[in-house]
């Protein structure tokens, strides 16, 4: 089976770098720089994150984007050739949802691929659950999953769902 390239995007602080760090079975490539804005963390991704893992025998290449909209040129660069997308949103920060929705619309307009929305920080209530975020973002419930990006068992759920959706679409009827 050919490796599958998956883009991991979403607003700043959603947990994209953490997600890739948690899941990658190979040494990751990250591009952190010191943040000069108050974004709730000291470092921020300025170019990309990269990691790989094998899931159900399928090799996945994960490409993480920066979160800030000023880096939208990297969204274009990194979505080239992607076959699937995971858009992460931080479940305890609903003020980030509008950007997440804009970003999802934009990315899908550039690269219409199967996608899953992952709602992070499910381990830290009070937090929006996937059903609530699906309603808010106008997404079908099967496209939105909850996760904790620091836990490998939980972080893998959006990828499993994505593979289901991708293989489901390809399967001969």
């Amino acid at each position: 089976m050919e490796p599958i390239k998956i883009v991991v995007s979403g607003p700043v602080g959603a947990g994209k770098s953490t997600f890739i760090r948690t899941l990658s079975e190979t040494e990751i490539v990250d591009t952190d720089a010191r943040s000069s804005e108050a974004i709730g963390k000291a470092l921020t991704t300025v170019a990309m994150d990269y990691g790989t893992l094998r899931l159900d025998g399928q090799l996945l290449y994960l490409f993480g984007t920066p979160g800030q909209e000023r880096f939208d040129f990297m969204w274009d660069v990194l979505t080239q050739g992607a076959l699937g997308m995971v858009l992460l949103v931080r479940g305890d920060k609903p003020e980030g949802f509008p950007q997440a929705r804009r970003q999802l619309d934009y990315l899908l307009s550039q690269q219409p691929v199967p996608y899953v929305v992952g709602v992070t920080r499910q381990d830290r209530p009070p937090v929006w659950g996937p059903e609530e975020v699906a309603l808010y973002m106008g997404q079908p419930p099967e496209r939105v999953v909850g996760l904790n990006a620091t836990d490998p068992g939980s972080a893998v759920t959006p990828l499993l769902r994505l593979l289901e959706l991708m293989l489901g679409a390809d399967a001969p009827s």
Binding site: T31, D32, A33, R34, S35, S36, E37, T44, V46, A47, P66, Q68, R70, F71, F73, M74
Partner: peptide, 25 residues
Amino acid sequence: TDGLPIVHDSADAPRVAAMAATALG
């Protein structure tokens, strides 16, 4: 280094600043 313009003489500074930070990173 996180891509915000500080001083410049470019009309396109916000975009150039972000790209410069990406190129450097």
